[in-house]
Amino acid sequence: MNDMMKDPMILRSIIMDHYKYPKNHKLNDSNEYIEKHMASESCIDDIRVQALIKNAILEDICFDGEACTIATSSTSIMSDLLKGKTITDARQIISEYRKMIDQKEYDEELLEEAVAFQNVGNQANRIHCATIGWDAIESLMEESEKQNG
């Protein structure tokens, strides 16, 4: 992996960039999209994540809502990273991401910009913020599989 991705200044700027200018930050009206509303009592983050899943491929992912820096940027990066992937590939990336969050060994190559959240475990009460969008897309993939059962 590129050494740049270990430089805290670079990692910070990735997070700030996705917070200030989130990708795919607009919900879609089309009824082809499925949607998951993520809101919890213990946290302020309140986002909606949508996915267009066809033939087990994540053709589009978008989101909107009110959330902190970590939740907004991690969801933005997730949407960028998983868009166009098959459900199988997406699951592998999510699994590596969760390993990283839990501070276990993980495959950096698969995570690209998402490695910016490698230290989120330093603030244990914020792990939820770094996974909120990822939890949403996982649940949407399950929903899609059930629908096409």
Binding site: C43, I44, D45, A67, C68, T69, I70, Q123, N125, R126, C129
Partner: peptide, 8 residues
């Protein structure tokens, strides 16, 4: 700064 970020 979003409130939760400040609280952290």
């Amino acid at each position: 700064v979003f409130s939760q970020d400040a609280a952290t």
